[in-house]
């Protein structure tokens, strides 16, 4: 496979996944804030700030935010690179340039996805369409994942796309944790709320579509530690950082099985980080959560650069 095309497929996977997480974050945060148990979490300003924080664009403290402008920016703004619409556009451009390699079915779905988002009316999106739009985006990305798994040969092409999907998932989950961790601190004590038992942990799990899984696993209400443990370290939670890294590792080996022991390879690097997390206990990071989040983000970005160098340099 051509290095340039591999790069495009990798990024197609990443943008599909990015669109999904951004959409779900908007959806869950907005709608769970409406009946949140404390006033801070209920505040529009608080929710909008949380969304902007998550896409990496936190506004200054004194900025006055207008709801429809913020929603438009993150949802449908063509001029804002991190908007959901742009993620979808980029996913489709990347699919387009590699359309000879992906299945007709997958391209068809990516293309339909693009036409859906591209023609979504901005006015109704900011007034009444937030739920509909973001829910459809998450539905359609699920369809895309199904097409990726079900209509492509599980060879290098599939591995590259899944590497992108899982890298992006690990990054987005970490960013969501970061954003909600920040929210939990800000909403601290506003309604007798404790950091440990903050309402934000429930929202966080829902943002990662992991609340039900969490309840099944722990059988009690989420706390800061159990939530982080579940979303970062639990290898069986399909949205956890650990699970994503396991998958990245497996796919890297498909692409180049001989490189696993080469200490300069992506495979080696991912394997190393993976085993670090595998033997980490959540108690180890208690009290240094922010540092740990920063550490994960740094390592993920290092993996990204190594992949770039190893597979996509053309």
């Amino acid at each position: 496979m051509l290095a340039r095309v591999a790069d495009n497929l990798f990024w197609m996977g990443r943008y599909i996944e990015r669109a999904e997480h951004t959409a779900r974050f908007m959806n869950v945060n907005y709608f769970s804030s409406l009946d949140a148990p404390n006033t801070v979490s209920q505040s529009r300003d608080f929710v909008l700030r949380s969304m902007l924080f998550m896409v990496g664009d936190p506004p200054p403290e004194d900025a006055k935010l207008e709801e429809d402008k913020v929603l438009f920016k993150i949802g449908l703004d063509r001029d804002y690179p991190a908007s959901i619409l742009n993620s979808i556009i980029f996913a489709r451009e990347n699919a387009h340039s590699a359309r000879d390699l992906i299945s007709t079915e997958l391209y068809y779905s990516v293309n339909k996805f693009f036409h859906f988002a591209d023609s979504y009316p901005a006015r109704s999106f900011v007034k009444t369409g937030l739920f509909d739009f973001t829910a459809q985006v998450t539905e359609m990305t699920a369809v895309l994942r199904g097409k990726i798994r079900g209509t492509l040969l599980h060879d290098a092409i599939y591995a590259i796309i899944m590497m992108g999907v899982n890298m992006e998932r690990a990054i987005q989950i970490t960013r969501i944790i970061n954003a909600k961790y920040n929210d939990a601190r800000k909403s601290l004590g506003s309604y007798g709320d404790r950091f440990r038992n903050s309402y934000e942990w429930t929202t966080l799990l829902k943002c990662a579509e992991s609340y039900d899984m969490f309840r099944r696993f722990y059988k009690k209400a989420p706390t800061s530690l159990s939530t982080l443990e579940f979303l970062i370290l639990n290898p069986d939670c399909p949205r956890s950082v650990m699970n994503s890294l396991n998958q990245v590792h497996q796919h890297v080996l498909t692409i180049d099985p001989l490189k696993a022991s080469d200490k300069d390879s992506t495979a080696f690097m991912v394997g190393k980080i993976r085993s670090e997390y595998q033997f980490k206990r959540i108690e180890d990071i208690e009290g240094a959560v922010q540092a740990f989040i920063d550490h994960i983000l740094t390592e993920l970005s290092a993996i990204g650069s190594q992949m770039q160098k190893e597979f996509f340099h053309y």
Binding site: M1, L2, A3, R4
Partner: peptide, 20 residues
């Protein structure tokens, strides 16, 4: 493979494509 010019290069008068 569907290639663009930048995916190919020539060395010692042979043509190669840049793959992963």
């Amino acid at each position: 493979e569907l290639v663009e010019g930048r995916d190919l290069f020539v060395e010692n008068d042979f043509v190669y494509m840049k793959t992963i």
